[in-house]
């Protein structure tokens, strides 16, 4: 289940996201200081860190929802803060974002939720857009009848899947996921991890995955970045990160839950 490196990452060495010297602060509170981060093409990068270390803030500054106070962010070869409105929109069109609580549009049903970017950006006629939307919903494992349901009538797991379908609507190059498995039961969470890897292998996008879920790190992530002390402490494969000499990292990966997650993955692999 631990993924092999995606074949595309050998072809293109240029990173899809390159963050350098990022500074973020809210008034006197400094969240990031000289933060560097790289997301390689086709990889799933897990971003972990304690509560309040600015994982979501980092995600928001990369997708352009928060203007950073300093530093540069290069995405898909263009420097975000130097682009004008229109160029920026062109780049942002290649993002797919899954927000922590799904953020589905509550006044639209699922198929309309997914079809909206197809109609607005790809200028498809409604009928085609909704047809493609239903395929996207089926792709993330939702039954056909869910297409006409409204978000308020869905369970947490279905909301996450539908939100993923919406994030995938325009076949993004980069997928940003903010705690996608939070609030899901372990079976649903494991299915989501599996789905993410399968889709990544088929669609070839790169994933920036903010998570607290150790199982997701073991099951889905190629590399892990640890946010601590206002910067990225280390970015490497899981084994190497777990060896890092840092109190928080040691507590995180070698605490009781970390050991349990590691053990469960090891046993799945040996069974296979």
């Amino acid at each position: 289940m631990v993924t092999t490196t995606h074949s595309q990452s050998e072809q293109h060495d240029q990173p899809v996201i390159q963050v350098q010297g990022l500074v973020n602060s809210f008034g006197p509170v400094v969240v990031h200081e000289a933060l560097d981060l790289t997301l390689k093409r086709g990889e799933i990068l897990g971003v972990v860190g304690g509560s309040g270390t600015g994982k979501s803030v980092l995600l928001r500054s990369i997708v352009g929802l928060k203007r950073p106070n300093g530093g540069t962010i290069d995405v898909l070869g263009s420097r975000l803060n130097e682009l004008n409105e229109q160029q920026r929109s062109q780049v942002e069109r290649r993002f797919g974002v899954l927000f922590q609580r799904g953020a589905l549009f509550s006044s639209l049903n699922l198929q309309e939720n997914v079809a909206l970017p197809l109609i607005e950006h790809a200028k498809l006629p409604r009928e085609d857009a909704e047809y493609l939307a239903r395929i996207k919903l089926s792709l993330v494992g939702l039954p056909a009848k869910a297409a006409l349901q409204f978000p308020e009538s869905l369970s947490g797991g279905m909301v996450k899947r539908a939100a993923l379908a919406r994030a995938l609507a325009l076949d993004p190059d980069i997928l940003f996921l903010d705690e996608p498995t939070a609030g899901l039961d372990p079976i649903g969470a494991a299915a989501f991890d599996q789905l993410l890897v399968t889709l990544r292998d088929a669609l070839g996008f790169s994933v920036f995955l903010v998570t607290h879920d150790l199982d997701t790190l073991y099951a889905a992530c190629d590399r892990v970045a640890v946010l601590s002390q206002k910067r990225v402490l280390v970015t490497d494969t899981l084994e190497n990160v777990a060896k890092t000499d840092d109190a928080w990292v040691q507590e995180y990966f070698n605490g009781p839950r970390g050991r349990a997650a590691k053990h469960s993955v090891a046993s799945t692999i040996s069974k296979e």
């Binding site: 239903r134 395929i135 056909a144 088929a202 669609l203």
Partner: peptide, 15 residues
């Protein structure tokens, strides 16, 4: 990708 999409389209999609 083709296999994934084919699997997704196996279910009846019209509602």
């Amino acid at each position: 990708l083709l296999v994934r999409i084919a699997e997704a389209m196996e279910e009846p999609l019209d509602v």
